[in-house]
């Protein structure tokens, strides 16, 4: 059973000021969360409850309004921006809800780009690794296709391959099964769970699908957020 917490969240609050008003929106309130290496965690809650915001905070894409996020014993708030960029490239694998593939890049190049940004592998090995990942996800015949030429399920699998490319410590998947058919859903989930199991990677999945919850070690429930005057 995993024990050492890799992700530690304390008194986390994220608010956004609404343009043109004096009101602020509290997008997320999470008093406490600890996730150990290899744990599989589902994040559930109604739309607008802050699931994506939580993921952005863990990825260092947003700064907390209050509280702290620690990953691998480092408080993300203490990192300079350049250090947060490096942290994100090396530590986080992110499967976005709308995939966010670069439209000008082929499936292969989208995956390779993540490897290039991280720069951990030798240059020549990156292409082979990207190719192998896509083959594993059943996209061997679609390597050189642009995202617009891929089906939704295929785009989802390319996004998963990109997230796995740098063997991250933390794998964030924002509603990875929302737009795909049941067959693709199983392929995607199987690959994510396999990665969590074999690489001892933390897997955080935001989902509305409650039938998936028994597969996870832990479920985090986020309440509805509130609009408040400042």
């Amino acid at each position: 059973m995993p024990s050492t917490p890799v992700i530690v969240v304390r008194n986390l609050v994220k608010t956004f000021s609404l343009p043109g008003t004096t009101a602020t929106l509290t997008a997320l309130t999470l008093p406490w969360l600890e996730i150990a290496r290899g744990e599989r965690v589902a994040v559930v809650g109604p739309s607008g409850s802050g699931k994506t915001t939580l993921f952005h905070l863990i990825a260092g894409l947003l700064q907390p309004s209050q509280g702290e996020v620690r990953v691998n014993d480092v408080s993300l708030g203490t990192l300079r921006e350049r250090e947060r960029d490096r942290f994100r490239a090396k530590t986080i694998g992110y499967v976005f809800q709308s995939f966010n593939l670069l439209p000008a890049f082929s499936a292969l190049d989208n995956v390779r780009l993540a490897l290039d940004v991280c720069g951990r592998e030798p240059r020549r090995a990156r292409r082979d690794k990207a190719r192998a990942l896509l083959h594993d996800l059943g996209l061997g015949a679609r390597l050189h296709h642009l995202p617009q030429a891929l089906s939704t399920g295929e785009q989802q699998r390319v996004a998963v391959a990109r997230a796995l490319a740098n063997a991250p410590d933390v794998l964030l998947a924002d509603e990875p099964t929302a737009h795909v058919d049941p067959e693709t859903r199983e392929v995607v989930l199987a690959r994510l769970f396999h990665e969590a199991a074999t690489s001892n990677t933390i897997l955080l999945v935001a989902t509305h699908d409650h039938t998936l919850l028994p597969r996870f070690d832990k479920v985090v429930h986020l309440p509805q957020t509130a609009l408040a005057p400042s």
Binding site: A59, L61, E81, R82, D85, R86, F87, R88, A89, K90, I92, Y94, F96, N100, L101, L102, P103, A104, L113, A114, V117, C118, R162
Partner: peptide, 17 residues
Amino acid sequence: AQRRRETAILRALGTGR
């Protein structure tokens, strides 16, 4: 519009400003 999205994706992957 395309550039803003592309910039966001690149930054999310860890690319610097």
